[in-house]
Simulated assay, not measured.
Amino acid sequence: MSEAAFLRALVVHPEPLVGRAMAQFLRLQAGVEVADFVRTLAEAAQHLRQAGAPAVVLVHEQLLTPNADALARDVRPLALGSRFLLLVDSTLNQASGNCQARRLARQVQLDGVVFGDQPLAALAQAVGAAVKRPTQDARTNASVPPEDGRPESFTPRQHQVLELLLQGHSNKLIARQLNITESTVKEYVSALLKKFDVKRRAELMAHLQQL
């Protein structure tokens, strides 16, 4: 049995569709027995009081920007034994984005950074790595590298396509609603297949229906 088996994880993300996708993927790819999702730090605190501390807590950067102290004040005391990872969206200036992410991680004393320009499967690797190594100061902790360096984060358009797929729309109907060509829709669907690490649309739909 792997070290990642029977882990619990908590994803704290402001976008429900993305947060649930991450939680689902952790269950499927990382051997995580229970992966829960909440939208805010307040909901995270309430969840931790009820369910106890998980092995790993993944927190989106957007939730820390307005009030970084809320994490230390309301969440960390309820999960003293947990590893905390910072979820960072892709940026056009990756070097600048990396520096800002590490600065934020240092500020709130997190154990690592997971960048959005990598496939969701890399989350499983990040969780496994965080659990296997002891907690360390974020100043010395390297970010989790992308599997192949491709920009595979959820773009606003991919998010729109994902939501329409969940509603059961065909490529033709999606193209009509978004005012784009059907071939462009196929490109977005192809990118989503890579994001979810599946090869066929039917597999993608099966994943989405479980979110």
Rank of each mutant, 00 (worst) to 15 (best):
A9V: 15
L10T: 15
L10C: 10
V11Y: 06
V11A: 03
V12P: 07
P14S: 15
E15K: 10
E15R: 12
P16T: 08
G19K: 00
A21L: 12
A21M: 10
M22S: 02
M22L: 12
A23F: 05
L26P: 09
L26E: 08
L26Y: 04
R27C: 11
L28M: 13
A35F: 00
A35M: 01
D36E: 13
F37V: 09
R39D: 08
R39S: 13
L41Y: 05
E43T: 04
A44C: 15
A44G: 13
A45Y: 05
Q46A: 13
L48C: 07
A51W: 11
A53F: 04
P54A: 13
P54L: 09
A55K: 10
V56Y: 02
V56W: 01
V56G: 02
V57Y: 04
V57W: 03
H60R: 03
H60D: 10
T65V: 13
P66M: 11
A70H: 14
L71D: 01
L71K: 04
L71I: 02
A72T: 09
A72Q: 14
A72D: 11
R73L: 06
R73W: 01
V75F: 01
P77A: 07
L78H: 07
L78K: 12
A79S: 09
L80R: 14
L80A: 14
R83W: 01
R83I: 02
L85N: 04
L85V: 01
L86E: 03
L87T: 05
V88C: 15
D89R: 15
D89G: 15
D89A: 15
L92K: 11
N93R: 13
N93S: 13
N93F: 11
A95P: 00
S96F: 09
S96G: 12
N98M: 13
N98C: 11
C99F: 12
Q100P: 00
A101M: 03
A101R: 03
R102Q: 15
R103P: 00
L104R: 10
A105Y: 04
A105P: 08
R106N: 14
V108L: 06
V108S: 08
V108Y: 03
Q109Y: 04
L110C: 06
D111T: 05
V113G: 04
V113R: 01
F115K: 10
F115Y: 13
F115G: 07
F115E: 09
Q118E: 12
L120Q: 07
L120Y: 12
A121C: 09
A121W: 02
A122G: 11
A122S: 15
A124C: 02
A124N: 04
Q125N: 05
Q125H: 08
Q125T: 10
V127P: 00
A129D: 10
R133T: 14
R133W: 07
R133L: 13
R133D: 04
R133F: 06
P134D: 12
T135M: 13
Q136G: 14
T140S: 07
N141M: 14
A142G: 07
V144P: 00
V144H: 09
P146Q: 08
E147D: 14
E147I: 10
D148E: 10
D148V: 03
D148T: 02
D148P: 00
D148G: 10
R150L: 13
P151L: 14
F154R: 08
